[in-house]
Simulated assay, not measured.
Amino acid sequence: MKFRNIATAFLMNNDDVLLMERSETNKRMPGFWYGVGGHVEPEEINDPYSAVIREIYEETGLKDYNVENLKLKYMLLRREKDETVINYVYFGRTNTKMVLQNDEGSLHWIPKQEAMNRKFIDVLKLALEHYFEDEKNDEVMVGVMQNEKSTGIKWSTLMNMEQ
């Protein structure tokens, strides 16, 4: 089995969330909605925070000083055929809505209450729902997608064993 590591950011500005609608010509998941992010590079494998900061800049033009309180909130695990996808999902706030468009899709500031009406892959939709239910929760949650016959996710709190 192989592993694919991804870092994703959902950035908030007031009650709007920045989402990317993938291009209809995109090879993977055309027309689906995501946060900004992408693959963790080999030199970032032990530092997904650096990966998500890089991806935010590449996909939006936002620099690190435009992003506040960027925190790891979810580690999502799911299988795709012969690989396990690990997605490190961060949430933060921005001090601007000025973003640059990119060639992977189109960026949109969507009111939080309308965000869930978009077409997401199940694991991201469940993470967003979970986050919006309790945004003040400071725990890092691990979510494991259940088998393909179930459309649920099993949540656990990532515990610090040294405390």
Rank of each mutant, 00 (worst) to 15 (best):
T60V: 02
K97Q: 15
F120H: 04
H108T: 09
D47M: 07
H108G: 02
T96M: 01
G105W: 03
V99E: 02
Y49A: 00
E104Q: 12
Y74W: 03
L62N: 01
N66G: 04
L72R: 12
T60M: 04
N69R: 14
T60I: 03
N95I: 14
Q101Y: 02
T60S: 08
Y34A: 00
M98T: 15
K73W: 08
D64R: 15
I53K: 00
P30Q: 09
P111A: 12
K27L: 14
P42D: 12
E43G: 03
R78L: 07
Q113I: 10
K112T: 14
L77C: 06
Y74K: 12
E41D: 08
L100S: 15
G61Y: 12
I121A: 04
V36E: 08
F91C: 04
R79W: 06
D122H: 04
R79P: 04
N69T: 11
R79M: 13
T60A: 02
Q113W: 05
K112R: 15
D64Y: 06
G31V: 04
I45G: 01
P48N: 07
I110P: 00
Y49D: 07
E58H: 03
N69A: 11
G92M: 09
L70R: 08
N69H: 13
T84H: 03
E114H: 09
H39Q: 11
E83R: 12
P30D: 13
L72A: 10
H39G: 10
Y49H: 11
L70F: 07
N117Y: 07
F32N: 07
Y65N: 15
L70V: 07
L70K: 14
N117R: 14
D47I: 10
P42C: 08
G92H: 09
P30M: 06
V99M: 04
E44Y: 08
E83P: 05
D103L: 13
V52S: 01
K71G: 05
P111K: 11
R79G: 02
P48S: 06
N46S: 11
L100G: 07
G105P: 01
A115W: 05
W109K: 03
D103F: 00
A51S: 15
G37E: 03
K27C: 08
K81R: 15
E59G: 00
W109Q: 05
Y34M: 03
K27A: 10
E80Q: 09
Y34Q: 02
I56T: 09
S50D: 11
Y57A: 09
L76R: 00
K63H: 09
G105D: 02
E80T: 12
K63D: 12
P111I: 05
H39A: 07
P42L: 11
L62P: 01
I86Y: 02
F32L: 13
L76E: 01
A115V: 00
R79V: 01
E58G: 08
I121S: 08
K71H: 11
N46C: 07
G105E: 06
L100R: 15
T94K: 10
N66S: 13
E68A: 14
G35A: 07
L107W: 12
E41S: 09
Y57Q: 12
E83K: 13
G38N: 02
G37L: 01
K112C: 10
L107C: 10
E55K: 09
I45S: 04
L72V: 05
K119S: 04
S50C: 05
I53V: 13
T84S: 13
E59I: 06
R28S: 07
P111M: 03
H39P: 02
E44I: 03
Y49M: 11
F32Q: 11
